[in-house]
């Protein structure tokens, strides 16, 4: 019970607007438990999101929350982290927000190794706009905008994060709450850009391919023997046709964006910090 109270400290009291049976409830619960277990002060948490069902999450968590615009979760989160590296920044986006409209930002935050944790809720459908296909929807799916079947191949979020060079890449499942909590904790502890794909089912629209029963049938932990620095093997596991592997695929150490910016400042100040007046000399 005491445990329960602790997690409740991280809930804002605003009731989630998600549909009954939505996988996002499980993710919310794993997230607040992870925050509680790390024992982060709510004042030091910045939760950034875009637009979509997943992006409603910040309203329900006690933290500093920023519900931005569609597809721009990562750029806003990066700005927050650059301005105040003391904050623990968690970015939340759905598969549409993060891989369709906002897909162009992922490689760059991965490259920069911006120290934040990116939770990508993947339910393979646009839920908030009521049932159009997303970049991860299965081939041939019948959706509102593909009445004759979807013709684009689905993308693999985890595989993309691996090739983009994210320094922590994991995949969890909303139903496996304990493991998901653990992945989020490790993601937050990781110094650098942590990408966690979270499989979640939409109870209203996508009931065929991202279906709990179907996922469970294919679910398999990343083999204990997997070397998290082996990018090629990580990619093979992430794109496996039969199994849906869950766990940590890639984990490497690299200087973060904040480290690099500090190095820049140090180099710029090698002859001492400058005040405004000192900048005027060049204009004389």
């Amino acid at each position: 019970m005491e445990e329960q109270d602790k997690f409740c400290e991280y809930l804002s009291g605003v009731s989630p607007v998600w549909c009954p049976g939505c996988g996002n409830y499980g993710i919310l619960s794993s997230l607040v438990e992870a925050l509680g277990e790390i024992d982060l002060a709510t004042k030091d948490i910045a939760l950034i999101s875009g637009i979509g069902c997943a992006s409603r999450l910040p309203y329900f968590v006690k933290a500093y929350g920023f519900h931005g615009i569609h597809g721009r979760t990562l750029p806003i989160a990066q700005g927050v982290k650059v301005a105040n590296p003391e904050l623990t920044v968690v970015a939340v986006a759905g598969d549409g927000d993060g891989l369709a409209i906002g897909g162009g930002h992922l490689p760059h935050l991965a490259r920069n190794n911006t120290d934040l944790t990116y939770l990508m809720f993947n339910n393979a459908i646009y839920g908030m706009t009521k049932g159009q296909f997303s970049p991860t929807t299965a081939l041939s799916s019948i959706t509102k905008t593909t009445p004759f079947g979807l013709f684009g191949e689905p993308t693999h979020p985890t595989a993309l994060a691996i090739v983009y060079g994210a320094t922590f890449v994991a995949r969890g499942f909303s139903v496996k709450k304990e493991q998901l909590k653990d992945l989020i904790i490790q993601g937050i502890h990781h110094r650098g850009f942590s990408f966690i794909e979270i499989l979640t089912s939409c109870s209203s629209f996508n009931t065929t391919d991202m279906n709990v029963a179907r996922i469970i049938k294919r679910l398999e932990p990343v083999p204990a023997s997997h070397n998290v620095e082996d990018k090629v093997e990580a990619l093979r596991l992430a794109t496996d046709e039969e199994k849906i592997y869950h766990g940590i695929f890639q984990r490497v150490e690299r200087p973060t964006l904040e480290d690099r910016l500090q190095e820049v400042e140090k180099a710029a100040k090698k002859n001492g910090a400058r005040q405004f007046e000192a900048l005027l000399g060049q204009f004389q």
Binding site: L74, V82, A83, L87, P107, A268, A273, R274
Partner: peptide, 27 residues
Amino acid sequence: PKMGGKVLQTEDEISAICAVAGASWAG
């Protein structure tokens, strides 16, 4: 950077202004 400020070239203008939004919100 000599004055302790940070400059970052982003991947596009949308990212630039969104980072401005995030940084400014952070103070």
